[in-house]
Amino acid sequence: MEQSTPVPKRSWVTLLAGTAFMGVWYALGLMRREPNQGLVDHLGGSDWASLQAETTAATELVATLVGGVGMLGLALVALAVTLIVGPYRRGERWSWQALWAVPVVHVALFVNDLTGFPTADTEVGTYGVLFLVTAVVCTIGLLLGVGAVLRRRQDTFEPA
């Protein structure tokens, strides 16, 4: 019977730290519910407060969408933390494979920030840097555990 090998502590702690780091930013964004300046510029305002004063319905919609993105981010963080402290620490291969979604999603968010959607600028904003840091830290955490996850331990089984 094959059993998984527990993942080294440095692996799951690094992965947990990267995930928790981004969770804090998702929570702050959810509480703030204010879009980045590029979106405000695209909507035709000079800053978020003046845009709110001019178009209440549109800014309420944008704030709701930003809040929804924050909730999705927190859901991803909650799922990742659950996988990290449970099956990943035990070294189950499927959880290691599933946790690759965290850096992949954050690289995609970084590329999205880099392309300047919905604006055409190519400056990397604060969120882009946070996405990239999260992706790098989580990738390092996953790579630190690759040996334990891919190696299988054989239990000795003696028939009665």
Rank of each mutant, 00 (worst) to 15 (best):
D155H: 15
A49I: 09
T59Q: 00
D121V: 10
V104I: 15
L51H: 00
F131R: 09
E34H: 14
M71I: 14
T5Q: 13
E2Q: 14
V62S: 03
V81C: 00
N112S: 07
T14S: 07
L65F: 07
P118V: 04
Q3Y: 13
G141M: 12
V102Q: 09
H106R: 07
V105T: 12
T139D: 11
T139A: 15
L132D: 01
A108W: 06
P103Y: 11
T64K: 08
L99D: 06
W25L: 13
S95M: 10
V85C: 00
P6A: 12
F110H: 07
V107D: 05
V104M: 08
A78K: 02
G128N: 03
H106L: 14
G23H: 08
G23N: 10
L114D: 01
A20E: 06
I84H: 00
G128Q: 05
L144A: 00
A57H: 02
L150Q: 15
R90K: 13
W25G: 05
G91A: 06
R90T: 05
P35N: 08
M1I: 13
L142Y: 04
V40C: 05
E158M: 15
V129M: 02
S50H: 06
G44V: 08
T19Q: 13
M31W: 09
V129E: 00
W12M: 04
V133G: 03
W96F: 10
G18E: 04
E2L: 14
V105S: 12
G44N: 07
A17C: 15
T59G: 03
D113N: 15
G23P: 09
G44W: 03
S46Y: 01
V40Q: 06
A98M: 14
L114C: 05
T156I: 07
A108G: 08
M71K: 09
Y26G: 03
L30P: 00
G86A: 15
L142H: 01
V69P: 03
R89C: 06
G23V: 05
G44A: 04
L99M: 00
A53M: 08
L143C: 02
V105F: 15
C138W: 04
T139G: 13
L74K: 00
V133C: 10
V7H: 04
L15D: 08
F117D: 00
W96R: 03
W12L: 01
V136S: 03
L109N: 11
V129W: 04
V85D: 03
F110L: 09
T115E: 13
P6M: 12
V7Y: 04
P118H: 00
I140D: 05
L83A: 10
F117Q: 02
G67P: 07
A148T: 05
M1T: 15
Y127S: 15
D155L: 13
L130N: 01
A160T: 11
T126H: 06
T126F: 07
V129L: 04
H106W: 10
N112G: 11
T59P: 07
R152S: 03
V7L: 01
